[in-house]
Design a protein around this nucleic acid. Structure first.
Lengths: 125, 125
DNA sequence: TGACAACTTCTACAACTGTAGTAGAATGCT
DNA sequence: AGCATTCTACTACAGTTGTAGAAGTTGTCA
């Protein structure tokens, strides 16, 4: 499932807390995003049509909650990027990240630990 | 600079070898991409307008070459993804990759080495 | 030199995206 | 009950993207 830029904004708010009303989402959008209320509704409607969000009419007002998990959305986005820009493989992608982006020492340590931990879990299986 | 899906296809061919003609690019497109020749031309024109590609009319035929480097295109794409889906930070992105994607042992080793190497370079600066 | 091939530029057009207005229904306050 | 507020559903509309046809121009080979 592929999300557009605007849809990511909405989903990010929704994942942060749900069920949520359109109004609630409006309030949790980043300060610099100034969308008309109806814009948010439109986006939500599209997300419902896509099956990324569930809508629950509660009397007068709709409550929304994600069907697509953040996990999965991230996975798709990364997969997509890997395909487009890294020959479909994650290895080169990570490589690029490590070489290109400046990591602080603590970030590096954290990564090392993460890799090792993941390693151990793997072994114990 | 943001590239669309179709534009990535073109750019990938162009980075692989340039200067290149539209015909040449057509030939190097993945087998499953079957675009009319004019489709490729349209995309190239748009890329030129965007400033991602330079066009060089050689008599009857145009030669194209990238102005946008692969490096930079990748950087932008990653930055964009990080912003959208990982609160703008690369740390969590990498973390996600490491935890979520199954790495083979050798991939892990390679990463460890890469991190360490990068570390050393950093120190020696 | 004429005909076919290969190029180029223009135009087209539907689907998707970003962004929002309008009108009518439901709710709430006095 | 009546008016203001707040929702919702529907419509709109320009810009971007994917995809390509048409028509004119240049090159090439017999």
């Amino acid at each position: 499932m592929k999300l557009t830029d605007a849809e990511w904004q909405i989903m990010n708010c929704l994942w942060e807390r749900y069920p949520a009303t359109a109004r609630g989402i409006a309030e949790r959008l980043p300060k610099d995003v100034e969308w008309a209320y109806t814009t948010i509704k439109t986006l939500l409607t599209r997300l419902v049509e896509k099956g990324a969000v569930k809508e629950n009419k509660k009397g007068n007002t709709s409550l929304y909650e994600p069907l697509l998990s953040k996990q999965n959305a991230r996975r798709s986005a990364l997969k997509n990027l890997a395909n487009q820009a890294f020959d479909g493989a994650f290895g080169p992608l990570m490589h690029f990240l490590i070489e290109d982006e400046k990591l602080t020492d603590s970030q590096k340590n954290e990564l090392l630990k993460a890799i090792q931990k993941q390693d151990k879990k793997e072994k114990s299986k």
